[in-house]
Amino acid sequence: MRQLILISGFMLVFAPLFAQPWTGSQPLDIHVNANTPAYLGLLIQGNTGAIGGLGVEGNATGTVYTLAATVDNNMIMGVMNSNGTGPSALNIDWQNHVGINTMDTKGYAFAVAGAAIFTEAVVKLQANWPDYVFRKNYQLPSLDSVAAYIRLNSHLPGMPTSAQVEKNGIDLGATEAKLLEKVEQLTLYTIELQKQVDSLKTEVQRLNCTRK
């Protein structure tokens, strides 16, 4: 009994030294204090065949959200399903790929199975943005060669084909760069055409004048 009292006293005196004070305003129910850098605060393990998970629930609906590790070593987050295998809303596989609504990211770092909306999305290309079309040393292909290419291949030179797009999807950044290249080339063709039309006009003008 004395020992118990001694231990309780010891705990009362020293507990504040171990406990890192919680600076938030809300009270806590369980406080796990990791003491050294290698420590996990809280470890939740699944036994063989069982997922290890943390259920978090707001009281009003009884919907339990889980952060769980599945038996195939992936992490799933979202509304708990009965077997805990996923895919859930947010999935992180054991190779650190993130999948939204899918566990299979097909090797991509991030995959969304479904529609996605952004207020702004930027693709930072490593290849050159195609302003090289306007450089002096750029060789604009002749319209005849472009026409011949289209006749032969039924797609624009440098652009992926329908079959390639069906297989690989549309690479947004790369495609945008190629579309810009085409627009820049068309701009050059149009400027060149306007010049030819202008010189034709003056020539017609000249012919009309001499005829009078």
Binding site: D29, I30, L42, I44, Q45, G46, G49, A50, I51, G52, G53, L54, G55, V56, E57, V64, T66, A68, V71, M80, S82, N83, G84
Partner: peptide
Amino acid sequence: AGNIGAWV
């Protein structure tokens, strides 16, 4: 399987 480890 199906057990929740910790429930908050």
